[in-house]
């Protein structure tokens, strides 16, 4: 409202962004749990550097002083706590990190990079799932019969055709700049907004988020034409692109 009343003032812009956080669940005795952390750090120094870390205290019953001490101990190991879960808010006062709720579990690849490789791994981003932008896979040659391309992390683009008896499985959308004769399965991780695009449709099977159609069900009138498939509620819709 302020912005409309006083045009000279810039409204504060806020954007949402999600990151995958590591969640530590300390167990008693805290001393030996910290030793475990030390052992992990000895194997891969800098493993937690630059990554958001959340402390889940639901498994232990700690006083405010103990929590302060634990956060301090982790801070000494260069692990800064972003927030705390599973604890009474009243215990978190003063300089302690805020209480977080509404977290959802997700898969974090079990890659423990060696010290020397740590940087390279971070660059290539092998399944760490921390990259903010969703990655995509580009194939610049035809996908042949019998080949199976599985890329759960994001979109797949094929410059060429997908042969009969070949399959593309993608976490995101699938783009085929050629004839799609094989099977295309998009949005396999529950991504219902994924789509399938192809320059010519002769597919054996199309699926998005588990909802599929076989060649028999695909409208004959679409054959050999550019088409896209998307999910409308629980039905798979396929239409010509032009």
């Amino acid at each position: 409202m302020d912005a409309t009343q006083n045009a000279a003032r810039q409204p504060v812009r806020m954007r949402g962004r999600s990151y995958v956080a590591f969640v530590f669940s300390p167990v008693v005795p805290i001393v030996s749990w910290l030793e475990e952390i030390d052992a992990t750090l000895a194997r891969s120094p800098g493993f937690f550097t630059g990554k958001p870390v959340v402390l889940d205290l639901s498994a232990v019953d700690l006083s405010q002083a103990a929590i302060t001490h634990l956060v301090g101990s982790l801070d000494q190991r260069n692990i800064r706590i972003l927030g705390i879960e599973g604890v009474d808010e009243a215990k978190l006062g003063g300089n302690l990190p805020p209480l977080l709720t509404g977290g959802r579990a997700c898969i974090v690849a079990q890659t423990e990079p060696q010290a020397a490789q740590a940087k390279a791994t971070a660059n290539t981003n092998t399944n760490t799932g921390i990259k903010a932008k969703s990655p995509s896979l580009l194939l610049d040659s035809p996908v042949r019969s019998g080949q199976s391309i599985v890329f759960a992390e994001g979109d797949v683009t094929v410059l060429g055709s997908v042969g009969s008896g070949a399959e593309i499985v993608a976490g995101g959308s699938i783009h085929v700049y050629g004839t799609l004769r094989g099977r295309a399965m998009a949005g396999i991780n529950g991504n219902s907004s994924a789509r399938i695009f192809c320059q010519k449709i002769e597919a054996e099977l199309l699926a998005i988020d588990g909802y599929y159609q076989t060649a028999e069900q695909i409208d004959e009138g679409l054959r050999n034409r550019p088409a896209q498939a998307w999910l409308e509620g629980e039905s798979l819709r396929i239409t010509a692109l032009n």
Partner: peptide
């Protein structure tokens, strides 16, 4: 004919891998 062509496609994939 279609069966021969599809099998050839499979073989081409194997030649490439």
């Amino acid at each position: 004919e279609v069966s021969s062509v599809r099998d050839s496609d499979r073989i081409i994939g194997m030649l490439d891998s």
